[in-house]
Simulated scan of single mutants.
Amino acid sequence: MQFGLTDEQRMIVDTTRAFVEAELYPHELAVERSGHLPLELIRDIQKKAIDAGLYAANMPAEVGGAGLDTLSWLLYERELGRANYALHWTCVARPSNILLAGTPEQRERYLMPCIRGETWDCLAMTEPGAGSDLRGMKASARQEPGGDWVLNGTKHFISHADLAGFTIAFMATGEETTPKGVKKKITAFFVDKGTKGFTIRDGYRNVSHRGYTNAVLEFDDCRVPAANVLGAPHKGFDVANAWLGATRLQVASTCLGRADRALHLAISYAAQRHQFGQSIGKFQGVSFKLADMAMELKAAELLTWEAAWKFDEGSVTEADMSMAKLKATEVLAMVADEAIQVHGGMGLMDELPLERIWRDARVERIWEGTSEIQRHIISRELLRAQGG
């Protein structure tokens, strides 16, 4: 594993950071205070991102993306992660990799419009009563004699479903007996906005990521053709496991960007703020905070970059990705909190981005698998190596 960045990776970092600072930072305060991201602003920044080659950069080159290796992609994600989440996720969209699992016809219908910036995708897994237990989902689909599927049930916490032109809905489609008991079979379906029986309702007001919406999706005898199955019937988990694993590394990387921004704000303030005749950074109570913040952030970076390197080498494990996600999200929480402490009361004012980074940090330990789920994955892998 090489620790130095290539010239191309440095260019990706520099280009993305310059774009974030010039095109996203100026709009953060307005989005934070209003909780709203206007469509005209989205389209304006989106066009600039497309012109800069930053839009859908996570996609392979053969479908119009940047064709980045995993580490380069995560370096790009870290730079985007410095900004308000709604701004970077919506205006510089990265379509879900699961769209690559589609047939040629599905790719043309669903993937390519997302890459061109004509629409957005959203994934619908989480339910009010299921949470982390996806096998416990109640929403279901049944296949009728003619081949169509009929979907019923409710999903919630579905990110940016109000903007998305379609959803990929995961539904229970039967049961199977396994060594661990009876488990539900899951199938993934493309469901277009406007399909009869498919309703999108406003979601919940969230303390994190203002401007980045969530929604409740309701399926009431919603009929879709067999051609809308993503992957094979009853193999929805196989599709998700094959294509969504790296999302934990994506979360880790965006957290690293925000943590790095908070750390540098704290360092700058500690160097410039004077109390009792000297900069506050010279007081041990502050200087030790800065040292610990920097050390923990470096550890989180190394875990994430190692997992990215192993991902491309084909040797990454579930524990590798869980360690990166767990460490980065918990380090972000610590760095954000300590950065505010260094700033004192000013750190809680929205004139600075710290209170936003602090609020936004909370959800990262919940979505894409809670910290407890990540620890379960890590410990399970450790025990399995010993036959446990």
Rank of each mutant, 00 (worst) to 15 (best):
L382F: 15
C91L: 10
A57M: 06
Y269K: 02
Q46V: 02
E330H: 02
D292R: 11
V229I: 01
G65C: 09
K155A: 02
P95A: 02
A266H: 06
I50K: 12
C114A: 03
E28Q: 14
G388Y: 14
A271C: 08
S279E: 14
G146T: 05
R116C: 07
A226R: 10
E301M: 04
L302W: 13
Q250A: 15
E77Q: 14
Q386K: 09
E313I: 06
A226T: 04
A246F: 01
G285F: 02
A49F: 09
D14L: 14
H36G: 12
M346L: 15
K184V: 03
C255L: 12
I373H: 08
M323K: 13
F157T: 08
R201Q: 15
G281Q: 12
G281A: 05
A215P: 01
N97K: 09
E118K: 06
F189E: 00
M171D: 00
Y25N: 14
S159P: 13
R135G: 15
F157R: 04
P113H: 11
T195G: 01
L37S: 05
I357R: 05
A164T: 08
M137N: 11
G136R: 07
T119H: 00
D238E: 04
W367Q: 03
F237L: 00
V92N: 11
S322Q: 14
S34R: 08
F189Q: 00
R201I: 08
L352H: 00
L80T: 11
M349D: 14
D312N: 02
D202I: 03
K196V: 07
L383C: 15
A307S: 15
R10T: 01
P60H: 08
E21T: 14
A86L: 07
A83E: 05
S132A: 10
A270G: 02
P179Y: 04
A385F: 01
F157S: 07
E118S: 09
F189N: 01
T70K: 11
L5Y: 14
D202V: 02
S379P: 04
G174M: 01
R375H: 06
Y55L: 12
P26K: 06
E351W: 00
H27V: 00
H36K: 11
M112L: 13
E381A: 05
L217V: 08
E381P: 04
P225A: 01
L302A: 15
R142M: 01
E338K: 05
E176H: 07
K298N: 14
N84E: 15
